[in-house]
């Protein structure tokens, strides 16, 4: 066993950061969704590494649950994206500013 846990953590951290970067810096809703998925997978990776590190299969179990949650989330998110696209014919997240009070400044 030569690969250090730190290497796994480094990969997971980088993946997570890429996810955040995608959510913040891209305007494409699809990219935002995929970035969120990446973050979730980064967390899954971390959980798996924990589980292996200790060694305790509890982490694996939680990662398993998370895969289920990811599936549910994906189904809903994609449905929402489809619906949004039908409404405005764009995937630009900046086009959806209904949260702002009043006019867009």
């Amino acid at each position: 066993m030569t690969v250090n846990p730190d290497a796994y953590f480094a990969v997971a951290t980088l993946l997570f950061s890429l996810g955040i970067l995608g959510v913040i810096s891209r305007r494409n809703l699809l990219v935002m969704y995929l970035s969120i998925e990446l973050m979730l997978n980064a967390v899954n990776l971390i959980l798996a590494t924990f589980s292996r590190l200790h060694p305790d299969e509890g982490g694996t179990m939680i990662a398993l649950f998370m895969i289920g949650v990811i599936a549910a989330e994906a189904a809903l998110f994609l449905a929402v994206i489809v619906q949004i696209y039908r409404k405005k014919h764009t995937l630009d997240s900046d086009a959806f500013t209904e949260l702002a009070q009043g006019k867009k400044l």
Binding site: I24, R27, T97, L99, A100, Q101, K104
Partner: peptide, 8 residues
């Protein structure tokens, strides 16, 4: 200006 409704 911060409250612009833009999620990002």
């Amino acid at each position: 200006r911060l409250q612009n409704g833009n999620l990002r």
